[in-house]
Amino acid sequence: MIDLIHIFLFTFLAIIAIVVIRMRDLFAAVMLMGIFSLLSASLFTVMDAVDVAFTEASVGAGISTILMLATLSLTTSKESTLYQRPRPLALVVVVLTGAALVYATFDMPRYGDAAAPINHHVADYYIARTMDDTGVPNMVTAILASYRGYDTFGETTVIFTACVGVMLLLGGARTFYRWRRREDAGDPEPRP
């Protein structure tokens, strides 16, 4: 049963990815990207990574779709097409890289393998100690906020910095130009 769900989800992911690449209508492409994120979120849920699925569904399918649509409303929703001659060398490079990546996956431990190195570095300690150390039943929250508190602090700072950057790029320039326009129009308003 779970295999059927996997096959279903992966098939749809592949189909949507190909359609998005071939699509010239950017509006439809953005909507399909949202569906792609939602399907990935379902995939994470099937893999029992509920917290990741939660993030993927809210950020990937929600916020980024809306930001893309907001961008499209400022520009145009048609991709400008530029005919390029087919390049056989590029195809060879892409196929070789893809083959190398697929070959590398054969070395990876199987999904859910208890003997995999990733499951034995610090995971054992977290699983054994989380409840005694923090009293928080959700291990993901305990790791993110307590054991890996520095990382999450850095992450929050990154989000903060991104916001400051957007405000400087989009907001700051606008107020400056508005002030300069007023000055040009001979409207002496005190500098903010």
């Binding site: 509920v50 809210s58 809306i66 928080v136």
Partner: peptide, 18 residues
């Protein structure tokens, strides 16, 4: 409820922003 179930500050913030 992030301590007890899936979720936490980041997801909650994104949902509130949405």
């Amino acid at each position: 409820h992030g301590d007890y179930g899936p979720g936490g500050g980041f997801q909650a913030g994104v949902i509130f922003g949405a």
